[in-house]
Computed example of a mutant assay.
Amino acid sequence: MAAPDEVTEDGYNREAQVNVLAQMLLLKETFPLLERAAERNGEARVVQHSSSARMIPSKGKLVRDYFAKTSAEHPLPKPFAGDIPGGTGMFNAGPAWQRYGQTKLANAMLSELFREKLAEKSSKIKSLVAAPGLAATELQVTTNRSFHTMRAWEANLIFTIAGQGPRDGSLPLTRACLHPDACSGDFYEPKHLTSYGPPVAIATGGTFKSPKAEKAVISDRETKEMMWRVLAEACGGEIF
């Protein structure tokens, strides 16, 4: 979360690769097993793990160059490039948080894109997404201690106001993974301010219950097709 602007051996921004691209490669490699499981059991599920940080990107836009290969000769574009010495804190939404927001928006948007693609194939695999809300875990500790992009006072403030423990934070994901009535296209997150409380569906079957919630997830067709191509380039072919 809000990690430094580093490039992996594969040539991608580290956060983009860890939070999105590597997961998509795993999905590509395991997709035949998911299809077999769906035929045997009547369903299988792919659940993305997003965050309220999906709302950070301006106008809900995913930027191709952030998920494409990068290097010293081809660095990331603004506002994603570089790190500010000493960090800037979370509330300043510096480059590190812009990068993180892109990955969490991608998780949410790709879940909807997968729902559409799977429906075209009449697949029994369900595509869902969940967001944990403000769950106090080692994630904040690591970001504060190692990356200096989340101040201790910032974490203390927001988690005192609307934080919850990791067990409660796991409930949206657990519901998406295991609830018998969960449908493809469902999006679960905490009930109160997207931060805490029991999990509720802000979208059911791909239909969002409010324009604000939809705006922070649904991208235009051009963006969806762009991300599908980017994933194919990174994973050595289309995921499915």
Rank of each mutant, 00 (worst) to 15 (best):
R14F: 11
R14H: 10
E15S: 07
E15L: 06
Q17M: 03
V18T: 05
V20L: 02
V20Q: 01
L21G: 05
L21V: 03
L21E: 03
L21Y: 07
A22Y: 03
Q23K: 05
Q23L: 09
M24T: 04
M24F: 14
M24N: 12
M24G: 05
L25W: 07
L25F: 08
L25D: 08
L26G: 07
L27N: 04
L27H: 13
K28T: 09
K28H: 12
E29L: 10
T30N: 04
F31E: 08
F31N: 08
P32Q: 13
P32L: 08
P32H: 15
P32C: 12
P32W: 15
P32K: 11
L34G: 13
L34Y: 12
E35T: 15
E35F: 05
A37E: 14
A37G: 15
A37M: 12
A38V: 13
A38H: 11
R40A: 13
N41I: 03
N41P: 11
G42N: 10
G42S: 12
R45W: 12
R45G: 04
V46N: 11
V46M: 06
V47A: 03
V47N: 04
V47S: 06
Q48S: 11
Q48G: 08
H49I: 01
H49M: 05
S50K: 00
S50V: 01
S52P: 03
S52F: 00
A53G: 02
A53Y: 00
R54L: 03
R54H: 08
M55I: 04
M55N: 08
M55A: 14
M55L: 11
M55S: 14
I56F: 00
I56S: 00
P57W: 01
P57N: 01
S58Y: 14
S58V: 13
K59R: 15
K61R: 15
L62T: 10
L62M: 14
V63I: 15
V63W: 00
R64D: 15
R64Y: 06
D65K: 10
D65F: 03
D65Q: 15
Y66P: 02
Y66H: 04
F67T: 02
A68W: 14
A68E: 13
A68H: 06
K69I: 09
T70Y: 03
S71L: 08
S71T: 04
S71P: 03
S71R: 06
S71K: 02
S71H: 02
A72E: 10
E73M: 09
H74S: 15
H74D: 06
H74G: 05
P75N: 11
P75T: 11
P75F: 04
L76N: 10
L76I: 13
L76W: 14
P77C: 09
P77K: 12
K78V: 04
K78L: 07
K78T: 12
K78D: 14
P79K: 02
F80T: 00
A81C: 06
A81N: 12
A81E: 12
G82S: 11
